[in-house]
């Protein structure tokens, strides 16, 4: 409390208290929305995961870790986890490396830079459901243009999205197509942040070609960007849902069953909310683990402070 209390007639509160009141008032709407839409539902999901709650069924019972025990023996879920892992294992590295390659290629010259940046970025802003339909036509086994071309070349024509051998690969290809423009612009932002003097210094210091420059300057200085892009690519790939929902619905024969699709099915089709919440929790833990990896372990290696 300030000693000036009472000496000034109008502001009856000290400046500090006024500021605190203003701060709370400005935080209030966001806090209410945060509690109602994020914190409480998230906590509810955590609680649900330990119940057998089913929409429309009798009152939920606390069943402890039973949902998680079920998950261990659930063959469908195991398939789903394996598929998700495979999908992430293809899409994330390909998006990172492809995005880096495209960024270097587009930035290497002035001509066509804006045009090609737009071309590769286009899938990021396109309605993914609609583009999934376009892919379905493109990959259609009999009338699709891709197989028509393969046929014309005398090559085999796989059932891209309807064979369990190729469906995950096809989805991964679409996933890479959707993500690569995003990673590319992140890398471009990282590239423009590299001081040009360093390239001049590298040239004088004996860097003779593009590879020397890349090793000595570009790659190390892109470190923070690369780390970030890796993590965000992993998380984005982990979230695959739209293409599965539109194109395969997990099929054929669960060959494209992925984590969020399983969670959606359990929760909103079979209405087994407790089990679905348990899957969601596992999903959350994986995401948090990736973030922790970023901040705790790897950050130290790429920031040169």
């Amino acid at each position: 409390m300030s000693l000036a209390l009472g000496t000034a007639a109008r502001p009856r509160l000290s400046a500090g208290a006024m500021e605190a009141l203003a701060g709370w008032a400005l935080m209030l709407p966001a806090t209410i929305a945060f509690l109602a839409m994020l914190l409480l539902p998230t906590l509810a999901t955590v609680l649900l995961a330990f119940t057998d709650y089913e929409l429309g069924a009798a009152a939920p019972a606390w069943i402890g870790l039973a949902n998680f025990a079920d998950m261990l023996t659930d063959r469908g879920l195991r398939t789903s986890a394996r598929n998700t892992l495979a999908y992430v294992g293809i899409v994330a590295p390909a998006s990172v490396l492809g995005g880096l390659g495209l960024a270097l290629l587009v930035e290497a010259g002035a001509r066509g830079r804006a045009f090609f940046r737009a071309v590769f970025f286009l899938p990021v802003v396109s309605l993914s459901v609609a583009m999934a339909s376009a892919w379905q036509y493109l990959l259609h086994p009999t009338i699709g243009p891709l197989n028509a071309e393969l046929r014309a070349l005398g090559l085999p024509t796989p059932f891209w999205l309807s064979s369990s051998d190729t469906v995950l690969l096809s989805l991964a290809a679409i996933g890479i197509w959707e993500n690569i423009g995003f990673t590319m612009v992140l890398f471009m932002a990282g590239l423009t942040a590299i001081p040009r003097e360093l390239y001049a210094a590298a040239a004088v210091d004996g860097a003779r070609g593009a590879w020397d420059r890349f090793r000595l300057v570009t790659w190390p200085l892109l470190g923070p960007t690369t780390l970030f892009v890796v993590v965000i690519s992993l998380v984005r790939a982990l979230r695959v849902f739209d293409t599965v929902a539109v194109l395969t619905q997990g099929g054929p024969n669960k060959a494209s069953e992925v984590l969020l699709w399983t969670m959606y099915q359990e929760g909103f089709t079979y209405l087994r909310l407790g089990y679905s919440a348990a899957i969601t929790l596992v999903f959350l833990v994986v995401v948090l683990a990736l973030m922790a990896l970023q901040t705790r372990v790897l950050d130290r290696r790429v920031h040169y402070g």
Binding site: E197, A201, A203, V204, V217
Partner: peptide
Amino acid sequence: PADRDVAMVFQSYALY
């Protein structure tokens, strides 16, 4: 530059 037998000190130092 690599083949010129020169060394340079930059205004920004340009350290790696």
